[in-house]
Simulated assay, not measured.
Amino acid sequence: MIAYGYARVSTIDQDLTIQQRALRSSGCRVIRAEKASGSRRDGRTELALLLDFLNAGDTLVVTRIDRLARSLKDLQDIVHELKAKGVALRATEQPVDTGTAAGKAFLDMLGVFAEFETNLRRERQLEGIAAAKARGVYRGRKPSIDVTEVKRLKEFGLGPTAIARKLGIGRASVYRALEVG
């Protein structure tokens, strides 16, 4: 049995050191780590690499289940993939053992709470934005595309690809800017 560790934090200013240390002390020689949101799997290249690499008899180790997934569906999908490959899942800080009915039930409960926490955070954020808008403090993100500059470059004779390169924006953004006004 080979134990492979996976560590994740959500933002670039957070530190992975504590998770990596815990994974190493639990026997993981290979640890993949990334700074990415746990609410979706896309963009989590280190997790995808590990899931592709693991073989029957291996164990995927995380410090806590919420480091692996923040939605119940995503967690269940990952556990299903691991089970199909014959890979066990273990958490160093939680009594998770996917080989028993009690361990699986506990894992599902943790997934429900992780998703609940994510939804609560999202609701609080939206409430805060609404309150800031009501006070006139929040106006949203400033536009990143200067529509007048896009139109000026178009009038100058540049095509959408050249405009996108010059301004460092996507070609679709150029088309949208040209449709405005």
Rank of each mutant, 00 (worst) to 15 (best):
D15C: 06
R122F: 06
T11V: 15
I163V: 13
V61C: 12
Q19W: 07
T148A: 15
K83I: 02
M1T: 15
H80P: 00
D146A: 07
V96F: 12
D66C: 08
R176S: 10
V9W: 05
L23P: 03
G27K: 09
P95F: 05
A48L: 06
K151Q: 15
I12S: 15
L126V: 10
K35L: 11
R21D: 14
V30C: 06
L54P: 02
L126F: 01
G111D: 05
Y4Q: 01
S10D: 12
L82G: 06
R139P: 02
S10W: 08
V9N: 05
T118E: 07
V9F: 07
L82P: 03
M1H: 14
Y6G: 09
V61R: 01
Y138F: 14
R122P: 02
S25E: 15
A22R: 13
E46S: 10
Y6Q: 03
T63Y: 05
R122M: 09
K73L: 12
R70D: 06
R121F: 11
R44C: 03
R41H: 12
R176W: 02
R90Q: 15
A162V: 13
T92C: 11
P95G: 10
D15L: 05
D58N: 15
E179D: 14
R29C: 11
G86Q: 04
A162M: 08
L60K: 01
L178C: 07
A134L: 08
Q20H: 04
T161Q: 14
K83R: 15
A84V: 00
A102E: 15
I163T: 04
L60H: 01
V112T: 11
D58Q: 07
A88I: 02
A91Q: 03
D42L: 12
A105S: 10
V180G: 01
Q14P: 11
S71E: 12
Y175R: 07
D97L: 01
I12H: 14
R135N: 07
G86V: 04
V62P: 02
S173T: 12
D74I: 09
V79H: 00
A131N: 09
F116S: 09
L178M: 14
A36G: 04
E34C: 01
V174S: 01
G181I: 08
A134P: 03
T45Y: 11
Q14Y: 11
L167P: 00
D97V: 05
G86H: 02
V30S: 13
L126M: 12
A7P: 01
L89R: 01
R171A: 08
R29D: 15
A105Q: 09
A131C: 02
V62S: 03
R90E: 14
I163L: 04
R141W: 05
G170C: 10
V150S: 04
G99A: 12
L72I: 05
G181V: 11
Y6P: 07
V112D: 00
A177T: 08
P95T: 06
R152E: 10
N119E: 14
R152N: 13
R32M: 10
E93G: 03
A91V: 08
G38D: 05
L16F: 06
S173P: 08
G57W: 02
A56L: 02
K35N: 12
A130P: 02
G103E: 03
A134S: 10
E46K: 14
G57R: 10
D77A: 13
R8P: 14
R40L: 06
D15A: 10
A101C: 04
Q76A: 13
D42V: 11
I65D: 01
R67H: 11
I31P: 02
R171G: 14
R121M: 15
A56T: 14
V96A: 07
S37I: 05
